[in-house]
Structure formats: C-alpha cells, structure tokens
Amino acid sequence: MSVYFLCLVLFSIGLYCVLRRRNIIKIIIGISIMEYAVNLFFILIGYRWHGRAPLLSQNQEVLRMVDPIPQELILISIVIGLSVLALLVAIAIKIFDKYNTFDITKIRKLKG
C-alpha cells in the first residue's frame, strides 16, 4: 500500500515544482515528473506479487502474468507526454528568443 502513497508523493512533488518554481525549464521538468508519477501508478495497478511479464512463449505455460492493459495504456500516455514535452521545449526556446529570460515573473506581457 505504501508504494501507492509514495507514488502520490512523487506526483505532489511534480505539482509543487510546477506551481512554485519560477524557471520555465524547471516547470517543464515538473510536468515530466507528474507524468512519470502517473505512469508509475499505472504500472503498480497492473502489478501482482511475483508476477511475470505478460508474454506467451513457446513450450511453456506462463502462470501469474501481470496485467498487460495498464502497460499498453502507459505506452500511449508516454507518447502523448513526448509530444507535449517537445512542444513545450520548442515554445521555451522561442520564448527565450523573445524575452531573453527563463524567469516567468519577467514574462508578463499579458494582463487582465
């Protein structure tokens, strides 16, 4: 059970990082940490004690497979995370072009 709580702690660390840091790059790292925490949570859902990888193999019967569905789901969620990350990094580079800083308290053209 404690594993799940540690996973949620990791999620909270990511959230804290996003909310409190002022550097754009650190915010991006925080988002990645959150995504990985969720992925880890999915893996933990599918895991069973002394489970094996969910692969059929020739000439042997596999008992106690772990649940393959969460693994397949996080594969997709990793791809989504990758695309969001790529977009974020590209925008961060462009923002640095325009403002010459990574500090979000100085990036304030929009108000209201």
């Binding site: 915010i27 988002i31 995504e35 969001v84 974020l88 961060a92 923002i95 990036i107 053209k109």
Partner: peptide, 14 residues
C-alpha cells in the same frame, strides 16, 4: 502568443 500558449500547455498538462 508564445506566453499564452505556454500557460495553456502547463495548465492543460496538469
């Protein structure tokens, strides 16, 4: 636009 998009992505990702 970049600033707005950054804000949007961060909130959307959370």
């Amino acid at each position: 636009e970049l600033e707005a998009a950054f804000k949007y992505i961060v909130m959307g990702a959370i």
